[in-house]
């Protein structure tokens, strides 16, 4: 346990020093404020829009951005040490592979979690301060849910990045695989589902479609943040299929959490089984 904390501490300090925390926080904060301010531009007004509109647009963008950031943050976590020779050295230390992996993940999870909370939290604070019309209690609930699910989404892709980092032997390959993963989960998967819907003219078994949606963490994230808002239908055509089928929020969050735990456990298992 001690070793996990030591490794996590180093990883977190690295995140601060490499300006990852600063960059992610700023990016999220600016994005959120900008979307809140210009969110209604399409309807011809500028100024803070409704919370629901802001969250819907934020979620739509975050679903692209967060997985990419998480994958870039951690794709080289193990393979990078392997290439540098420090992995072999660490293996000669009183430190198990699982402890090393857990420590690194905890450090990265803290970097990403903190940046997400700070960035989007700061944006929420700005909206409340600037816009007299925004009631804190209206804002806090949906925003807290958005931030919480964003953190979980980030962690899920961190865990996927660890799988990539454990199965590859070259950093360049890991980077390629990370991009491919992003592409598959964020773009291709939904297009394929859409294609399935169109191709079968909507005659897909509802239960099957439900399961397929829940198999992709980005879709789960969308479901958490888009269902329950009327704007949902406009913002995400496909998810409207699910309208009226209300998923319980806690269930969706549990699925996101499972998307963190299962890949991470797989990464730990693969890492422990590796020869060197």
């Amino acid at each position: 346990m001690r070793e996990v904390l030591i490794v996590a501490g180093k990883e977190f300090r690295d995140g601060l020093r490499n300006r990852w925390v600063l960059a992610i926080t700023l990016a999220f904060a600016l994005l959120a404020v900008a979307l809140a301010w210009f969110g209604a531009a399409a309807s011809g007004e500028v100024g803070f829009t409704q919370v629901s509109t802001t969250i819907v647009s934020l979620a739509t963008l975050a679903v692209f951005l967060i997985p990419l950031i998480a994958l870039m943050l951690a794709y080289d976590s193990i393979v990078g040490e392997d290439e540098g020779g420090t992995l072999l050295l660490l293996m000669s230390y009183p430190l198990s592979r699982v402890a090393l992996l857990s420590g690194k993940f905890c450090g990265h999870a803290a970097v990403l979690g903190l940046s997400t909370i700070l960035g989007f939290g700061a944006a929420a604070a700005v909206i409340v301060l600037v816009d007299a019309g925004a009631a804190v209690h209206d804002l806090s609930g949906p925003f807290a849910l958005f931030i919480g699910s964003a953190v979980l989404l980030g962690w899920a892709f961190l865990a996927l990045a660890y799988v990539i980092s454990v199965v590859t032997r070259e950093k360049a390959r890991a980077a390629g695989l990370a991009l491919l993963t992003w592409f598959l989960f964020v773009l291709v998967y939904d297009l394929a589902l859409l294609g399935l819907l169109v191709g079968t003219e909507g005659r897909v078994d509802g239960g099957l479609f439900r399961v397929l949606l829940l198999l992709n963490p980005t879709d789960v994230f969308r479901l958490v943040n888009l269902t329950g808002f009327e704007e949902m239908a406009a913002a995400s055509g496909m998810l409207s299929v699910m309208a009226g089928q209300g998923f319980p929020i806690t269930g969706l969050l549990a699925i996101l959490a499972a998307w963190t735990i299962v890949p991470l456990a797989a990464a730990a298992g693969l890492f422990a089984a590796r020869r060197t």
Binding site: D14, G85, T86, L88, L89, S92
Partner: peptide, 18 residues
């Protein structure tokens, strides 16, 4: 315990540059 009593210098190790 053994690993705490062992020192190892690998060939071609590049430490954390930052």
């Amino acid at each position: 315990r053994l690993r705490m009593a062992t020192g190892y210098l690998p060939e071609n190790v590049s430490f954390y540059d930052n």
